[in-house]
Write a protein that binds this DNA or RNA. Structure first.
Length: 880
RNA sequence: GGGCGGAUAGCUCAGUUGGCUAGAGCGCCUGCUUUACACGCAGGAAGUCGCAGGUUCGAGUCCUGCUCCGCCCA
């Protein structure tokens, strides 16, 4: 074996091997419990970032863990066509060639997108493989593939037939750059520095009229009223009268409406029903006409007369300039507002009335709420339930049509002759209403999230009643970031219940977002994004995975830490070398039966600690505490198995070749290493498989071995206590040596004064370990010193006094000072303890257990203090 | 405006039902080529657990208020 672990020599080969043997293939198997995770499908044009790496690490861990626990574990991979995002990417590529999608035409453009999709898809799946994902590639799906398209079609038609999908003209969010309508969720509000323009609308007779305040002066061209609050004393007399809309010279009424905020601006609101949702409502209440002044390209319409054709922002400047010139611009204030922006291109969206397809959400939201009310779906962490619930309780209808080319076409045909709609599962050749063959399919496509909403069941074969759907659905756990609870999780739950009749998963384990080492959001534009590929190149996939696991906290954002990568990489190497050590010493192994073997203290101790660790890992994984599970393994492997057991094991390993002790130790090392590897495997699949293959075993892959379980019969409280005492002795001797900077190779003589014979015989039985681990030559033991050594440094702990005999002479003054420092520390603790025990409330109210523990503590403090004082006395008399 | 999360060692974070002499990794200091590992070993320094109150025998942990940071919704 190499002296250091070389991930790059291992990972590709191991992954290939897994694929060859079908290690991750899952089948319908009624003898086993199903466990299923469907991957949140990455956008097919995106690049996998740290968030994906985190997500895949979690899901792979859960899947491998369950697979080893005997579940039929399916992790189903796939990618998302990501309608608008992908179309934008390809349009940007075309733009570099000086082309637009219209230059190519719909068919060629879509063909081009498919081509780009293939390239990106390869990169994405390559990266997934590098991460070590144990997905069943045979079952990989794509939201636009044939089966899923059929699911989309079925879902749409079903909802249409149920009246839950309808077409209508409503005010929607329009992105002038993308040229499509958007759902409310795809609009982001971002604080921006803007202005508040105060514009005077004079009366027809030249009277002063009213002053309105607006953040969007260009929309005034479409004003059809001014609204004031009915109780507003300033404007009471104006209500019902008219003013002249400047620039357009249109006479518009002043109406009274409760919606108006008297505190805002002048308390008078210009009403533009065509370009603001609130204004639209006011307009409807007062039967105001609607004048469309901004078109779908963000340009001014013919209705704006001289401004027609101007871009909305050019128009804004022009309108302001013209108003100023006419003396109608009263003032301009700085103002912070939050204009809506397109999630994909950051363009300020334009609210406008448009005919679109909608999903009626109220009935579906009720289903979504029922899912959590009936505890069919559990959120982890639980607090997200509230977020989910509140969104569903206040939901608006979902605009699902997009004026894009990349996506699922809306399965509706319009009849040129009778004007009716035909919505069908199979492409119709004629109108169902009048049988005319002059029918045209709706040119629009569906919101990409419509197909995503079906993902957990469409990937399993729905609408067909496949065995997979029957067996794996509902899936076990969904593991998305909390940022897509609304976009995705809620919609999957609603659609799953509504269309399949059951919730799509029973648990939603949400993870946070990955931030850079300064806590900033990672983004390509800011240049602070960390590329998982680079991390895996540098540290290996296992190290990255372990580091991510260590950083995962429940639903909290994860701050990327390069230090963690180094630490995790080092742990890989530690594991590698510990294994190297064990394997090197296993060549002549003849296993013994542990039940009948003579076990040493260290043997009993490590078996007990090992068993405890397994129980802890199980407990933490059950609670989705992945970091704590990883920590339990890490601490045990490094701090106990390597630092103590392996060191002590060397004594027997390097002794007599045929001794039974050697065989016993070999057996234990083998058993423990095998279990350690299996325990860590879900966290670090590559290195554990690589090492496991070198163990003397005949299995095919570690990924299909049973997951180790805590063995109750290995628990040994006595061994743990005794070992703890032994560790104290060794640690104290080492500390004394370090105090004197005695070189590690130089053996020292030690005297231990122990409180009782029991302790003496325990330490005596561990002489070899002490000699080896603390480099001790002569070890003297006694319950009381016949003659206290005066040429020695001493330490006191757990009722024992440990003397390190010096080769030279002791600096008595220094030693006294050192002991006094120790006494000071102990005195503080003693005082606290005494305080507690003198408090009658504590004695009466605290549980007996806590009180007696406190008494023991105090006794130990007293005992140790006494020893330290004795030592000082001794040294003082010696110095005189 | 409503809601949620965070604030613990220099940095990144654990600390699950209150009992803690508050832990880990990295960093820092001292010593060490000890036959698995210098990606290592041994030893060590380092925190009034955001602030102010309260409940309790006992609070990093529970309650109230506040400050700052971040996020979501309007």
């Amino acid at each position: 074996m190499e002296k250091a672990y070389q991930p790059q020599q291992v990972e590709d080969r191991i992954y290939q091997y897994w694929l060859e043997i079908g290690a991750f293939d899952a089948e319908v198997n009624l003898d086993k419990q199903p466990y299923c995770i469907v991957i949140p499908p990455p956008n097919v044009t995106g690049v996998l970032h740290m968030g994906h790496a985190l997500e895949h690490t979690i899901q792979d861990l859960l899947t491998r863990w369950h697979r080893m626990r005997g579940y039929e574990a399916l992790w189903l991979p796939g990618t998302d066509h990501a309608g608008i995002a992908t179309q934008n990417v390809v349009e940007a590529m075309l733009a570099e060639e000086g082309l637009t999608r219209h230059d190519l035409g719909r068919e060629k453009f879509v063909a081009r997108v498919w081509q780009v999709k293939e390239e990106h898809h390869r990169e994405i799946t390559d990266q997934l493989r590098r991460e070590g994902v144990s997905v069943d590639w045979r079952r990989e799906r794509f939201t636009l593939d044939e089966g899923l398209s059929r699911a989309v079609r079925e879902a749409f038609v079903t909802l249409y037939e149920q009246g839950l999908i309808y077409r209508g003209a409503r005010m929607i969010n329009w992105c002038p750059r993308c040229g499509t309508g958007l759902s409310d969720l795809e609009v982001e509000r971002e604080l921006a520095q803007g202005h508040l323009w105060y514009i005077r609308y004079p009366e027809p007779d030249g009277g002063p009229g009213v002053v309105v305040a607006t953040t969007r002066p260009e929309t005034m061209l479409g004003d059809t009223a001014v609204a004031v609050h009915p109780q507003d004393e300033r404007y009471k007399e104006m209500i019902g009268k008219t003013v002249i809309l400047p620039l357009m010279k249109r006479e518009i009424p002043i109406v009274a409406d409760d919606y108006i905020d008297m505190e805002f601006g002048t308390g008078a609101l210009k009403v533009t029903p065509a370009h603001d949702p609130n204004d639209l409502e006011i307009g409807q209440r007062h039967q105001l006409p609607s004048v469309v002044v901004i078109d779908r390209d963000g340009k001014m319409t013919e209705a704006t007369g001289p401004y027609a054709g101007l871009d909305r922002y050019e128009c804004r400047e022009q309108v302001v300039a013209d108003l100023k010139e006419q003396g109608l611009l009263e003032r301009i204030e700085d103002y912070q507002h939050t204009p809506g922006r397109c999630e994909r291109c950051n363009t300020v969206i334009e609210p406008l009335v448009s005919t679109q397809w909608f999903v009626q959400m109220a009935p579906l939201a009720a289903e979504g709420l029922a899912a959590v009310d009936n505890k069919k779906v559990r959120f982890i962490p639980e607090r997200w339930t509230k977020v989910y619930r509140e969104w569903l309780e206040n939901i608006e209808d979902w605009c699902i049509s997009r004026q894009l080319w990349w996506g699922h076409r809306i399965p509706v045909w319009y009849c040129d002759d009778c004007g009716e709609q035909t919505c069908a599962r199979e492409d119709p050749t004629q109108c169902v209403h009048c049988s005319s063959e002059n029918i045209q399919q709706d040119p629009d496509v569906l919101d990409t999230w419509f197909s995503s909403a079906l993902w957990p069941f469409s990937t399993l074969g729905w609408p067909d009643e496949t065995p997979e759907l029957e067996y794996f659905y509902p899936t076990s756990v969904m593991n998305p970031g909390y940022d897509i609870i609304f976009f995705w999780v809620a919609r999957m739950i609603m659609m799953g219940r509504h269309l399949v009749g059951e919730e799509p998963f029973s648990e939603v384990f949400l993870h946070g977002l990955v931030r850079d080492e300064h806590g900033q959001k990672m983004s390509k534009s800011q240049g602070n994004a960390v590329d998982p590929i680079e991390l895996m190149d540098e540290y290996g996939a296992d190290a990255m995975r372990l580091a991510l696991c260590q950083l995962i906290t429940h639903g909290q954002d994860v701050t990327y830490s390069p230090d963690r990568m180094v630490g995790a990489r080092n742990f890989c190497n530690k594991l590698w070398n510990a294994s190297r050590f064990v394997i090197m010493n296993l060549e002549d192994m003849q296993s013994v039966e542990l039940e009948s073997a003579q076990l040493s203290l260290a043997d009993r101790w490590i078996l007990s600690r090992h068993s405890r660790m397994l129980a802890e890992v199980q407990r933490q994984l059950d609670g989705y505490n992945l970091a704590q599970a990883a920590e339990a393994i890490y601490d045990y492997v490094w701090g106990e198995f390597c630092d103590w057991y392996a060191e002590i094991a060397k004594i027997d390993l390097y002794a007599d070749e045929d001794s039974s002790r050697r065989k016993t130790v070999q057996t234990i090392l083998y058993i423990l290493l095998d279990e350690i590897l299996r325990t860590i495997h879900p966290f670090m699949p590559f290195i554990t498989e690589e090492i496991w293959q070198r163990l003397p075993q005949s299995g095919e892959t570690i990924s299909r071995q049973p997951y180790p379980q805590s063995q109750e019969q290995w628990r040994d409280e006595e061994a743990e206590e005794q070992m703890s005492l032994l560790q104290t002795v060794i640690t104290q001797i080492r500390a004394l040596r370090a105090e004197l900077t005695i070189s590690p190779g130089q053996p020292a003589d030690v005297t231990v004064i122990a409180p009782n014979d029991e302790t003496i015989s325990l330490i005596a039985s561990q002489q070899e370990a002490i000699a080896s681990l603390a480099t001790v030559e002569e070890l003297n033991l006694a319950t009381a010193p016949a003659e206290p050594p005066q040429d020695a440094l001493s330490a006191v702990s757990k009722g024992m006094q440990i003397y390190l005999h010096l080769p030279g002479t002791l600096d008595i003054e220094e030693e006294i000072k050192r002991i006094r420092r120790e006494i000071n520390e102990l005195e503080k603790l003693r005082k606290r303890s005494v305080g507690k025990l003198q408090n009658s409330d504590f004695l009466n109210k605290a549980p007996d257990e806590v009180v007696s523990k406190e008494r023991e503590k105090l006794a130990e403090f007293d005992r140790d203090l006494q020893k330290l004082w004795d030592q000082i006395k001794l040294l003082s008399s010696a110095s005189r």
